[in-house]
Structures are given as structure tokens and as C-alpha cells.
Design a protein around this nucleic acid. Sequence first.
DNA 1: AAGAATCACAACCGCGTCATA
DNA 2: GTATGACGCGGTTGTGATTCT
Length: 291
Amino acid sequence: MGRSPSCPKEGLNKGAWTALEDKLLASYIKAHGEGKWSDLSRRAGLKRCGKSCRLRWLNYLRPDIKRGNISRDEEELIIRLHNLLGNRWSLIAGRLPGRTDNEIKNYWNTVLRKRAKGQASIGTPPSKSTHKMLSTESGDCEPLRSPRATKAKIKVILTKATRSSSKVRIPTQLPAAQHTDKLRDGQLNSTNNNQEMSGDIATVEAHNGTQVLDSFNSDGGGSDLLNEQLKERDVEFEENPMQPLAFDEAMFKNWTVNPCLNGNDAMDFDSLALLLETDEFSFCRNINFQT
DNA sequence: AAGAATCACAACCGCGTCATA
DNA sequence: GTATGACGCGGTTGTGATTCT
């Protein structure tokens, strides 16, 4: 059927946005709301394609965007979530209120990836830039996004993202009790394709014995959302002690390699995140998800 | 001081998914 | 069932700013 170009119209502006364009777009959206981007750009009097308007709004003009340095907490969260999710920037951004997927992607590509690369090349003479990055051996993360302020040694394995929807198939293992509890409590949505579910870290779709993780929901918490939720889970554990995690290293590695394992047990992202928190599973942070 | 190298990030591009006619 | 357009996502590029030599 052939696909039309993304922004086929001739005579549209490209490149950097002017202050006037920003103003037009922001005021139009304020008055009429988002959506129908191609129509919106025309109605707002902008000579921009809809995609460009959407991007500008989402990444720059939106009022709730948090600009400025990415904190250490946020960075740690990004690293952890990247280990968990790979290059699914929108999902990662969903856990960092006020941060955009583009910002996180840029941050990863410019700061964290280089840091990881610097790690990988230990033993070989560092390049000029990696030498700078590794000049602090303490392992502390300096305040970030100040120019060239990338000094921490954090080992990150890059993942090669494949194009996919926001659904992530995850193996079903552990903790079955928790899974059934969620089913009972209605926290699992069997047909959900809606990313605005509330109540839990992830919305999970029962699907042929496996589960399809739909997305993190955005609940508007702080930058250490994951920790917050883990804390909440801890409390829950005390009240309802679960069986010990039915995991071992081999099992974990196995399902990361073969993410479509059959399984009778349930695992959700709460569990996985909790698992990643533990020292025993510190190796998980270096696992390369084969997505 | 000047040119080169590097960094940071906004913006673009192409593709996949979904809704709908 | 198919075609089409809108939207969203992730990869990549362009460019101004900053730092180094």
C-alpha cells in the first residue's frame, strides 16, 4: 500500500523552533488541548508538520517538564530501569516525572553509554574522553549534566532494542501467590491496552500462560519512585509474608535469554525490581536483555 | 588566541501499531 | 480484509556550546 512520508507537505518549516512558534503552539494547546497534531499545527497557524509540533510540545513546551540536572537518584533509576527494560525510553520516562523519553535517551547516549564504554575498555589505554570520565575512582556520581561531569564508574550493559510496541513479554515465574493475589484484587487487567491504569507498577495481561507487561503507569511520584514502591512492598511483605523468592541465578539468566519461557508461575515487575534491589542478585544489573 | 575536539540536546526520520472507513 | 492516516517510539543527525591543545 505504500507509506506516505512522515511530513510530506512542501513549504513547512524545519529546524529550530522560534519563540513565536513556541508561543503559538503553547497557547493553542492551552486553549484547545493536545491531539490531532496535523490538524492542530494548521489551526495554530504553524508551518510545521504535526509530528514536529507534538515533539516540540512533549519534549520542550509542556508545563510539567522538569528541566535541569538529572539527579543522582534519577540516574540510578534510569540505569536500573534500562537494565530492566532496555531502550524503552518512554517506559523509563514514565517512571521519572517531568522527564521526557527524548531527554533520557539523550542522557543515556551521551553520558551513561560512554561511561559504560569506558568501563568496558578498562585495561586498554583510555581515550581522552573516557580518561576524563573515569578520573574519579570513588564510584560516586557527581551532580550530573554539568559539562563533562561524568565521573562515576557504573557498569551498564547496552541492550540492542528492537522495534516493538510498549508491550514486553515477561516470563511467568514467581511469586505465584502474589500473582493470584493481584488477580483476585483486580489489579491484573486481562485485556488492558490502556496505559493509564493505576494502582501498581505494571499492568499485566494474562496471555496464553505468559503475561504481557503493558507498561509502567505514571503515578506522578518522585524520582525515586521505584524505591518508594519497593518500600510499600516491604510493608506489604511484613503483613503478608511471602514465600522466599523462588529464584536462583541460573533461572534468572535463563529467562532473560529466553523471554518467552513457558511458565506456570507469575512474575511481575514489582518482583523483578525487588529482586534487582537485593545484593544476591546484583548480577542482574548487568544482564543484557535480549529483546 | 585560535583551531580542533568533544559534548549536549533539540529536532528529524523511518517504522510499527492502532483506529477507522 | 484492506487501505489509510494519526500517533508514538527509538535511532540518528545537526549544530551551538564548551573544553582542550
